[in-house]
Design a protein around this nucleic acid. Structure first.
Length: 238
DNA sequence: CGTATTTGACCCGCGC
DNA sequence: GCGCGGGTCAAATACG
């Protein structure tokens, strides 16, 4: 074979590799967007559950709500920006988790009974688990990041708007903010939107409502989301 | 100097 | 009753 044929073949191979790369890139974008959608829906579910508990005022109404928050594993601090001011009043090393657990009280209002516990996830140290107890008796602080409240009906019920501490630094941070304030910063690619629009939203909402009856569901869902994000993020780190 | 954080001591509920 | 473990207190310390 002559040199020009060989050259053409190589050129074709390069083109094919480029296409493959582009396909992978788009798939990666799609997967990232889907994970964000999952986390958003997870928050809506939690909000819905809290709303139910508050309305029915069952004995377990002030049961703690537990949420997973993406955080930098290298960062030792357990600060979770959720629109409230917290004062740390204790720290303990628990038996089942080598990472210390931090105890915070809401310091925005002197009478506010809300407490939270923050502990790094044992299985995946890039997550922290924040456990909220009680209901705030005052509105959240208008922090610069989320000064405008969400139009989302559920957001007003689910008080803690959790933000990843390092959302601006990591290429793949989990933004658990219910207000979805990232509409500008992380717009999904058009082809992803096209795929996602095929999903019937109403059915998902109804299904979620039925699942909300199961108290174990939120914990299980949180674990699944955490696991899926971990699996996704590792090989596709940008 | 005032405020927030750290950290060891203390309290309390629970299982044995 | 005792020990264990989780949660809270409060004095000491750090920080702006």
């Amino acid at each position: 074979m002559d040199a020009s044929t060989s050259h053409k073949r190589k050129k074709k191979e390069v083109e094919e590799l480029k296409e493959e790369l582009e396909r992978c890139r788009k798939e990666n974008e799609a997967l990232q967007f889907m994970v964000e959608v999952m986390s958003s829906r997870y928050n809506n579910l939690q909000a819905y559950i809290q709303e139910r508990e508050q309305r029915t005022e069952v004995p377990g109404a002030n049961k703690a709500s537990q949420i997973f928050v993406k955080a930098d594993a290298k960062d030792k601090s357990l600060v979770v920006k959720d629109g409230y001011q917290w004062r740390k009043y204790g720290q303990k090393v628990t038996k089942d988790n080598p990472s210390p657990r931090a105890y915070y009280r809401c310091s925005m209002a002197p009478e506010c009974p809300v407490k939270k516990k923050v502990q790094r996830c044992m299985k995946d140290k890039s997550f922290v688990i924040a456990t909220y107890e009680g209901v705030h008796n005052h509105p959240p602080n208008g922090s610069p990041r989320q000064a405008s409240p969400s139009p989302n009906r559920l957001a007003s019920v689910f008080k803690p708007n959790i933000l990843s501490e390092d959302e601006d630094k990591t290429p793949f941070s989990l933004d658990l903010n219910l207000s979805s304030s990232n509409q500008e910063t992380r717009r999904p690619p058009q082809h992803v939107l096209q795929n996602y629009n095929g999903i019937e939203h109403k059915n998902i909402e109804e299904y979620a409502a039925s699942l909300a009856k199961d108290p174990n569901f939120t914990v299980a869902l949180a674990a699944v989301i955490a696991g899926s994000i971990t699996d996704l993020a590792k090989p596709t780190r940008q």
